[in-house]
Amino acid sequence: MSHENVLTDRLREAGYVAQHVERAVGGVIAVAGLVTLEDGSQLFAKTLLDHAHDHDLDVFEVESAGLAALRELAGVHTPDVLLATQRLLVLEKMEPRTDDEAFWERLAHTVAALHTTTADRFGWHRDGWLGRLRQDNTWEQDGHVFFAERRLLRWLAEPLVDAEFDRQERRALERLCAALPELIPAQPPCLNHGDLWQENILATSEGEPVLIDPAVHYGWPESELSMLWCATRPPVSERFFAVYREIAGLDDGWEERMAILHLRELLSVIAHDDDQDGGAAHGVRAVIKPFLRRSGTSGATEAAGGTPE
């Protein structure tokens, strides 16, 4: 049975009779698509595949709660959730965005406002998902500890990451994490969408930015920005960063920090077996290179301006 037929059957079980499904691209855990119903109306739906052990997952419950948090806590436009079960998520249809300067400027205002929603610690009241793997959101007072342990080092236990990097490379990542307080300035915990790349940005019928597929938590604002900065995006999106900086402010050197903060996404790509061209692994190695120990020298102390061991 095709993936589209699986989605159609599960929609029928839930009371939605689909006439046509236009499958969406992207995603690593669900089959999703724009659904045209027999009355001509449209909605967006996705379902988990059987091999994902969908009966054990709360992916759609977490996603639904994340969309509500973005909307209720920060006023972000998100699609209305029409149905959320263990196997099926049905959402209000949104529109493709227009990639012009006006849209990316509006998005900068949206994200800057999102980041004004703050907390007194990092994390979230429940764990979430990044793709098909758990996102550890355990509360932590120290942002550097949170990012090191919950966003970087947690990937080392994943089989594909473990297979990709040798012992020296793993130790280099650990040294980078130990040096984070010297590499990343302290930032307050603010509400993060958590997976803010261009495929998760749509629009309302009026052209206002809409955010989908969140991995919500309280984290560093710069870690959020790294997803947009480092991932493929249209050239006009430079307007986003100019406007965000005007509104929210960014500490000097923020561009140089983006690659370090993007490590979480690169490690996730490898863990999900989605690095067919090796680009993510190459990116990780480029960032951790200064922390590799060579001839008895500690790269961490050199990168931080210290004395070699």
Results as ranks from 00 to 15, higher is better:
13 E>H: 09
17 V>G: 06
21 V>Y: 00
24 A>Y: 01
27 G>H: 07
28 V>M: 07
31 V>L: 05
32 A>E: 00
36 T>I: 07
38 E>S: 12
40 G>P: 03
53 H>S: 14
59 V>K: 00
60 F>K: 05
77 H>F: 13
78 T>I: 11
83 L>W: 00
95 E>Y: 15
104 W>F: 15
106 R>F: 07
109 H>G: 03
111 V>K: 00
112 A>C: 06
114 L>C: 03
116 T>E: 15
116 T>V: 12
125 H>D: 15
125 H>Y: 12
128 G>W: 03
129 W>K: 02
133 L>E: 06
136 D>I: 11
151 R>C: 07
153 L>Y: 08
156 L>S: 06
162 D>N: 14
167 R>S: 13
170 R>S: 07
177 C>R: 02
186 A>H: 10
188 P>M: 03
189 P>N: 09
190 C>E: 05
191 L>G: 04
194 G>F: 01
194 G>R: 01
199 E>M: 08
200 N>Y: 07
201 I>E: 01
205 S>F: 09
206 E>M: 11
214 P>Q: 08
219 G>H: 06
230 C>M: 15
232 T>H: 13
234 P>N: 13
246 E>F: 08
248 A>G: 03
251 D>L: 04
258 M>C: 12
260 I>V: 13
261 L>W: 03
263 L>Y: 00
265 E>H: 14
267 L>F: 12
278 G>T: 10
286 A>C: 04
298 S>F: 11
306 G>W: 04
308 P>D: 11
